[in-house]
Design a protein around this nucleic acid. Structure first.
Lengths: 272, 272
DNA sequence: GTCGTGATCTCAATAGATGAGATTTCTAGT
DNA sequence: ACTAGAAATCTCATCTATTGAGATCACGAC
């Protein structure tokens, strides 16, 4: 990280970088604040804001402030409705009513990150940190790890060379060979059990494939750890692996219905 | 609609307009398709895609196709977490367990549109068309109309002059005076009952204010029409008006906690 | 290791971005 | 309805970034 060459910056890049300023800690920005932050004049700042406002990505707030706009919420709905994974998985998961399951989660692979895309709380008293939209690194948490374990060899290799330290810190192996072995073991089991993300629950994750040997997501069933016996864990393993397998099978035969033009799956990019 | 003067188009505008191509009916675009659609060369098309990909708004899919990206899902979560309306309203609504309520909805005013931002299904068998992210015009549906009724005078006037036909078509008045009267009546009742959006349910909506006489959203309680007596409607009116009022009161005294810099409410713009 | 597709680079010509201040548009209060 | 004050847009000359065409590069697949 840190190539000395300063990349040439296009205008669109500069406009889009404004979006990154709108974080949870700073959800609203006044024009004055943006001017100093961008080092631009009032006219230019308004030009940037207008571009984002016209796209609906920002909305004017009180005073001369701006906040994230309605288009984001609309686009998220569009994704929810056009994602074949959710189209297939959600009805299946809603039919699954085993009382063992405290919560269900689907996490998708995007590039070298894993994004939670669906959370269903079944046990009303369970404490969940997962929400649609949370991002995790590939080494952290069982939903991520089971995806990591099923990456194609070259991607796994790339990932390791770029993230050897994180892998070691996560106790997934201090060398490439150790790492490969632990990943092989995960594949052999076909699932991953963890409770490091949230100490009050156990999560059991199984891989979802959108193509033969191309992992795209994971399904996790979660339960409060205090009430979970080993037998129940074993049963949850069965449940989650069966459900994930059923989802994968339907995904393999998925054909878009409503005239959708082409595939809708993402492919990972290890570059970063 | 239809100013003869062709507006000068900035580069950022062109890049952002690419996002509009990704609709529910066309969730995935190949580079070739985008080239013909944009009338641009391969190099330019890739430049646009790279800008949006680097921002996370698009993600590469199978083949040389692109789909909406993970950043949208993340940003939606950010909005959910930083919106004071949801911070205040959701806990209050989750405590409300009256069996009369089949579903709950919060809709927010953005510009001259109303966006559904929260939906909670209470009756598991109710058929809902509302979802977070759906957009409605200001004249259509009770969640919209109760917001329309409480717009400040100049905005209401602006809205009427720009949308007289739609207002008449929605039977809200054939003249400005008639419109003003029907809006006054809605304000007098303090709520709006409707079932035009979804014939199988009745919805009852009450306004939510984020400032004295500045409407920002509406709360709606919904129930299957087949099971709803007039007495139950009256009780639902009480429930929704009480809850909306409680939310408004808390919003008025809302102060951001976590060092958020400034207000987070949107102000309408009637320009369109 | 080697092939093939998908993505990026190079360079000259051209089209768009920028800053400063005036101007217009919008909103709130009387 | 009218007006004061603020918010957003416009104008124009200068300068810098974007564009297209083709070659080249990089990465994933076998």
């Amino acid at each position: 990280m840190g190539t000395p060459s300063m990349q040439k910056q296009s205008s669109a890049d500069k406009v889009l970088k404004v979006l990154d300023l709108f974080t949870e800690d700073a959800p609203a920005w006044t024009v004055e604040m943006l001017m100093t932050e961008l080092g631009a004049t009032r006219a230019t700042t308004y030009r940037y804001l207008k571009a984002l406002y016209d796209a609906g990505l920002l909305a004017p707030g009180a005073g001369s402030s701006y906040v994230l706009g309605p288009r984001i919420i609309q686009l998220d709905r569009q994704i929810r409705r056009s994602d074949p994974l959710l189209q297939i998985a959600v009805p299946l998961l809603e039919d699954e009513r085993s009382p063992l399951i405290g919560a269900k989660n689907i996490s998708s692979l995007y590039g070298d990150q894993v994004l939670s895309v669906y959370v269903e709380r079944c046990d009303p008293d369970i404490v969940l940190t997962m929400q649609r939209g949370r991002v995790f690194p590939l080494v952290y948490g069982s939903p991520s790890r089971i995806i990591l374990a099923y990456l194609p060899p070259y991607q796994m290799k790339n990932f390791y060379t770029a993230n050897a330290e994180e892998v070691a810190r996560a106790h997934l192996g201090d060398t490439w060979e150790e790492f490969r072995t632990s990943m092989r073991r995960l594949r052999k089991h076909g699932h991953c059990i963890g409770n490091e993300m949230n100490r009050t629950v156990v999560g059991i994750s199984a891989p979802i494939f959108h193509d033969k040997s191309a992992v795209s997501a994971s399904l996790s069933y979660v339960r409060r750890v205090e009430f979970t016996s080993d037998e129940q864990k074993a049963e949850l393993v069965d449940l989650v692996m069966t459900a994930a397998d059923r989802i994968s099978k339907q995904l393999l035969s998925y054909k878009p219905e409503n005239g959708a033009k082409g595939p809708v799956f993402t492919t990972p990019r290890m570059s970063g």
